[in-house]
Each structure stands twice: as structure tokens, then as C-alpha cells.
Simulated scan of single mutants.
Amino acid sequence: MIGRAFFMASDPASVAVFMAKLIAVFGLVSVLLAFPGWRNRGHAIRKSFLARLLEVLVFYGLVGVLGFAFEINMGNRFAQTWEFYAITLSLFLVLGYPGFVYRYLLRRPKPKPL
């Protein structure tokens, strides 16, 4: 009964707008995460460790700004401490690991034509 009252407190239009915003944020984040792979598709990749680290940090910042914009749009922005940023950066790196495994550990280089 309590759960039913919770869902009845919001009108369907506001729930639909919230879900549309949530889907848009998730879609934009997934595009940002996939961008480096799309950009380098079919090309030899020659980047230093520093360039890759900078790329990860820039995309982390973009995702963070998008998250804060979504939070401000929904209501008040909450103050965060350094622990929040350490945990979210760790999660960002962990969630990016499957792409690293696919790109560098599972894919085999294409054989060169003779």
C-alpha cells in the first residue's frame, strides 16, 4: 500500500519528463564512453600513457558535468567532498575496463596482405 501511494503522488506527465531526461543522460554518457573507440576505428593507435590518462580524465570531467547538470535540473545540487570524486573516478575506470579488455586483450590484429 505504501508503494502504491508513492507512485500516485506524481502525475504521469512529470514522471514521463523525468524518465526522458534520465534516458537522455544515459544515452549521452554512453556516447561519451564510446567516442574514443569510434574516433580511432580502423587507424593505428599511437598514444603515450600521458595522452591516454588525459583523455580518461577529460571524459570523466564531461560525465561529471553532465551528472551535475542533471542534478541541478532535478532540484538542489549537493556539496561533495573528495571521497565522492575518488569513488566515482574508480567506478569510471572499472566500468571502462571491459572496453580495454576487448580493445587490447581479445582482438587480434588483422593479417597484413602480402
Rank of each mutant, 00 (worst) to 15 (best):
P113R: 04
G75K: 02
I2F: 12
V15D: 00
E55F: 03
M19L: 13
A24G: 02
R46W: 00
A44N: 06
R103M: 00
F70E: 00
E55D: 09
S14R: 08
F92G: 09
V17S: 11
E55W: 02
A34G: 05
G37Y: 13
V63Y: 07
V17I: 08
K110I: 00
L22D: 00
A69Y: 08
Y60N: 00
G67T: 01
A34M: 09
L32Y: 05
Q80E: 14
M19T: 02
Y85I: 05
F92D: 03
L105K: 06
M1P: 01
M1Y: 07
L114W: 08
V65W: 14
L93H: 06
K112Q: 15
V15I: 10
Y60A: 12
F68S: 01
G75A: 11
F18P: 05
L66H: 08
W38C: 11
Y60V: 01
F6N: 03
T81H: 10
Q80M: 14
A20H: 03
L22W: 01
K110N: 07
A16F: 07
T88L: 06
L89A: 15
M74E: 14
G27L: 07
F49E: 01
F100C: 03
V25N: 07
P111S: 04
V94S: 08
E83H: 12
A69L: 13
F70Q: 02
F100R: 03
L93D: 08
A51F: 06
V17K: 00
W38A: 11
L106M: 10
V101S: 03
L95G: 00
S14P: 03
R77T: 12
N76W: 02
G67E: 05
M8T: 11
L62G: 13
S14K: 11
V65E: 11
A16T: 09
N73R: 07
S14H: 09
I2K: 10
R107M: 10
S90A: 15
I2M: 10
I23V: 15
F7G: 14
S48Q: 04
V94K: 09
N40P: 00
A20Q: 06
T88I: 07
L114P: 10
L66W: 08
A9L: 14
L95C: 03
F18T: 06
L53S: 12
E71L: 09
V56Y: 05
I87R: 01
E55Q: 08
R4C: 07
L57E: 06
A20W: 04
F6W: 04
K47S: 09
G27P: 02
K47R: 12
P109L: 12
A34C: 06
Y85N: 06
N76I: 01
E55V: 03
P36T: 02
V25L: 14
F70W: 04
K47L: 10
E55N: 06
L95V: 12
R46T: 13
I87L: 13
F35I: 07
V25P: 04
M74A: 15
R103F: 02
A86I: 13
T88H: 06
Y85G: 08
T88F: 01
F35P: 05
A16G: 04
V25R: 11
